[in-house]
Design a binder for these strands. Structure first.
Ligand SMILES: [Mn+2]
Ligand SMILES: [Mn+2]
Ligand SMILES: [Zn+2]
Ligand SMILES: [Zn+2]
Lengths: 138, 138
DNA sequence: ACTTGCTTTAGACAATGTCTATTGTAGGAT
DNA sequence: ATCCTACAATAGACATTGTCTAAAGCAAGT
């Protein structure tokens, strides 16, 4: 994720140990951690990092478009580093596991004019729900 | 909404003034109130109703399948009496206005097997976002 | 090395929701 | 009509998630 850090530095981001560990924690595929999960993992690498800094940094990464906020349940928001490839989510109703998915088709086109109520629509968010293989086995 | 009350009584629901006003508040189309909004409107009809009772009653109505919980933002959950007609939502990104919508097509079929990760999928939730005519005018 | 403005921090505060112990009451029994 | 009792309502403590503030720390340019 050092290309992310380079990009951020180029955008005037002051580089600190705290910001580096938050960026490191958010690396990977199908990563959708809550702020407190990010904090717990960041503390493992940098014990003195505070909760406020994790929230601040996540908020900045979201503003910069480098991380997405995802709400698949009504609990804590989740932070998704897969911000550069549009996608939707598949969520296990039992354990909460989240996978990135890419349905075919154009859901925008599926909403008739008569159902648009004069809105200018810019975005559709799809959440598939079901039971993951792990939970089905148990 | 007295058919709802009849149905509930038939299911063994003890009828109280509090439950009646909550059910009354939840009557209508495109109604998506938060628990505290329900409480405020219930208080107007029955000043002594408590916040806990509103939460309890909403939770029961959800369990009974008579009201849906909807989360279109990461703020408070919203309670939707339109529980018997499957639908999705169109949300104004500016003022939060919510409309019930019925897109055509079958979004379940739009998720290829290779993207299902072994899940047994039971449901899809779609949220269209845009700007409502009111907010566009201003 | 110095300076300065950005960053971090602890903890107070806020919003939303849950739980508990007590009091009240709906509706059936008499 | 009155009584009983299990179910419901209530106040307020508590929990979770997130925001804000004021003080202290520090990155990076000079
Ligand atoms: Mn994702
Ligand atoms: Mn609805
Ligand atoms: Zn699962
Ligand atoms: Zn609007």
């Amino acid at each position: 994720m050092s290309d992310l850090l380079e990009r951020l530095r180029g955008r005037g981001w002051r580089m600190t140990a705290q910001r580096r560990v938050v960026a490191e924690v958010l690396d990977g595929e199908h990563v959708h951690l809550t702020a407190d999960e990010v904090h717990a993992r960041a503390v493992a690498k940098l014990p003195e990092i505070s909760r406020a800094t994790v929230y601040n940094t996540l908020g900045e990464l979201v503003s910069l478009g480098e991380v997405l906020e995802v709400s698949t349940d009504q609990r804590a928001k989740r932070y998704d580093p897969n911000a550069h490839q549009p996608h939707h989510h598949l969520v296990c109703a039992h354990c909460g596991a989240i996978r990135d998915v890419h349905p075919v088709g154009n859901p925008m086109a599926d909403l008739p004019d008569s159902e648009r109520f004069g809105f200018t629509i810019s975005d559709v968010e799809m959440t598939y729900r079901g039971v993951c293989p792990n939970c089905a086995a148990a």
